[in-house]
Design a protein around this nucleic acid. Structure first.
Length: 569
RNA sequence: UGACCCAUGGUGUAAUUGGCAACACGUCUGGUUUUGGUCCAGAAGAGUUCAGGUUCGAGCCCUGAUGGGUCAACCA
């Protein structure tokens, strides 16, 4: 069975087996690979990980967990011109943050460069690989098309000795980049383009982030991946759908290598797509490089570091990965599911706090000047063990501008002239006067409070229709709040021919509010701490935050059926 | 005149392997509520791309069609 055997967060959810689980169960039933299950997560260190990688990470480590196997982390670093150590470190951080552990199984494809080289030599000796002296264009022209077979290279039938000599000289750096490649000799007429004598080694004279300048030639992905799997004892090599057509080639190389019953198997699944964003490293890099966002970890980015900074928790991302499932169907997941995942987690765990984003001053005219008091507030109504805190109250308060209307429409329950509402955990107040400046802008409200309603209940049983959040002016912490909206206005920014995806960027994806006031409880909050600002949403402390200037990110807004009903009108 | 893959409510995933199409998100309604949140109750929404076939019975098996995706980087 494939249910999680360990009962972690006592949720004991029995996960449905997906098609990969089923295939693994079959392999196990057939006694393959001595009943071992061993997966790997193989990122290329050429960018930061995104939520799509998170799905793959959860899948690979999840499989190992379900079947009592192991998962390796392997950096697929076969192209020195694109890869950097910075990326290696960020990737490791992100995986660890998600809560997965590769233990001592950290590998680099570059660890296998010597073995790969030897394997190439062997193929040459076996007459299964040859050096091609033609340039890229010529070779491409001989490749044929998907509907027309290719033609063989004039260098295809060189002698083994000549191939050996040339290949060694390629490795020695005797030739220029692009002047020669090593190719596998397979079948130029294959209906599968990848089998038409694929390149397996090319000359690149760039500094490699790990092997330095030792190598002048580097293996191609197809020549490295399966072999790395094989040498690491990987049993199930899970990758995304676009590698489906590579599988025959993967198998071909394994055929050349296999010397026992053990054999790794490639299985493909559909990559994650999210609407209103882009999910390709190249496109994300473009956003970073061109300054459309502030970096890989900009809270608007679908990167793991961006989501982390935005306030997403590892739990929420893992739950999300579970919810989207694993299939071979190319689909697009609605961001609302991602947002649901974080709201679900933070609702249970986030400290409640009151914060006013667009302040409107309220003077409690019958509250003694210069005095203040502390009121009890619940830290999390979903979790009594989180206890209570004190919130200071005084004569001058801020409330949310949206919570007052001079001419309240029909279903508006909040404050208006002559109306009485409750200030959460404090008192009932009634609005008596609306003070305006010379432009007619409302500058403050004069209200009276009912001392008998302390804590928020009226002894006479009088009801109010609304409860507002508030802060005490002299106690509140002024802070910056960054509100985020989707990065793109279009559901599928990449789905338009002839229009660059950046054309669809949302100009209002970031709104910075500098004049926000939060209750003093947040004074000592540290970067990445989560809060629910009551009635508003979930916020966390940004990495830019300092003791003097606390900065909050809005992770996600609370569901707001009032705003929704207003929008409909 | 190719190969390979895919097709179930708006979205994503299920369906005891041939037996009443279910769950989640989203949407809507009502209730509870010191958060217009949460929670609770309920509703709408697919008859499974189409056409044949096998079968007592097909979302599931077979055939064909249609639609979509991937493949012709010295990227992974």
């Amino acid at each position: 069975m494939v249910e999680k055997s360990n009962v972690t967060d006592n949720s004991e959810v029995q996960k449905k087996a997906n098609f990969i689980d089923l295939q693994i169960e079959e392999d196990l039933k057939a006694g393959k690979n001595n009943n071992r299950v061993h997966t790997r997560f193989p990122p290329e260190p050429n960018g930061y990980l995104h939520i799509g990688h998170a799905k793959s990470i959860c899948l690979n480590f999840g499989i190992a967990e379900k079947f009592g196997g192991k998962t390796n982390l392997r950096f697929d670093d076969t192209n020195p011109s694109k890869e950097e150590t910075e990326y290696v470190e960020s990737i490791k951080d992100d995986i660890r943050w998600l809560g997965f552990d590769w233990e001592d199984r950290l590998y680099f494809t570059s660890d296998y460069f010597d073995k790969l080289f030897e394997f190439a030599i062997q193929l040459i000796k076996d007459g299964k690989a040859y050096v091609d002296d033609q340039d890229a264009e010529t070779i491409a022209s001989q490749k044929g098309t998907p509907t027309r077979p290719g033609t063989e290279s004039p260098f295809r039938n060189r002698s083994v000795e000549e191939n050996l000599d040339l290949f060694r000289r390629m490795a020695a750096g005797e030739f220029d980049e692009g002047s020669r490649v090593l190719r596998a000799k397979i079948d130029m007429a294959s209906p599968n383009m990848h089998m038409r004598d694929p390149f397996i080694y090319r000359i690149i004279k760039a500094h490699h982030h790990r092997t330095g300048d030792k190598w002048k030639i580097y293996p191609m992905y197809d020549f490295a991946h399966g072999q790395s799997d094989y040498w690491e004892g990987i049993t199930h090599s899970v990758c995304t759908l676009e590698f489906e057509v590579h599988r025959p080639l993967y198998d071909w190389f394994i055929d050349q290598l296999q010397e026992s019953d053990y054999r790794p198997r490639q299985i493909e699944f559909a990559r994650l797509n999210l609407n209103y964003t882009v999910m390709s490293k190249r496109k994300l890099l473009e956003l970073v490089k061109d300054g459309h966002v502030k970096g890989w970890d900009d809270p608007r980015m679908p990167t793991i570091s961006g989501l982390r900074r935005r306030g997403y928790t590892p739990e929420s991302i893992r739950n999300f990965a579970d919810k989207v499932g694993v299939t071979k169907v190319d689909g697009v997941i609605d961001v609302s599911l991602l947002e649901f995942s974080i709201k679900e987690h933070l609702n249970r765990t986030a400290q409640r706090v009151m914060g006013v984003l667009n302040p409107l001053k309220v003077v409690i005219t019958n509250y003694p000047e210069g005095e203040s008091e502390e009121l009890d507030a619940v830290n999390n109504p979903e979790d009594e063990s989180m206890g209570k805190r004190k919130v200071p109250f005084s004569r001058e308060l801020f409330i949310e501008r949206d919570d007052f209307m001079e001419d309240p429409p029909r279903k508006f329950f909040r404050l208006g002239p002559g109306r009485e509402v409750r200030l959460r955990y404090a008192y009932y107040i009634t609005c008596n006067d609306v003070i305006k400046d010379e432009n007619g802008e409302i500058t403050e409200l004069h209200c009276t409070y009912d001392p008998a309603t302390k804590g928020g209940n009226s002894p006479d049983g009088r009801k109010v229709k609304a409860t507002l959040h508030w802060v005490s002016v002299k106690h509140a912490v002024q802070s910056e709040v960054r509100l985020y909206d989707r990065l793109f206005n279009d559901e599928n920014p990449l789905g338009h021919k002839d229009v660059d995806f950046k054309e669809f960027m949302n100009p209002e994806s970031l709104k910075v509010l500098l004049n926000c006031f939060i209750e003093p409880f947040v004074k000592d909050a540290k970067p990445l701490d989560h809060f629910q600002f009551e009635r508003l949403g979930y916020f966390n402390v940004d990495l830019d935050s300092t003791k003097e200037n606390i900065i909050f990110n809005r992770t996600v807004a609370l569901r707001d059926s009032w705003a929704k009903s207003q929008k409909r009108k």
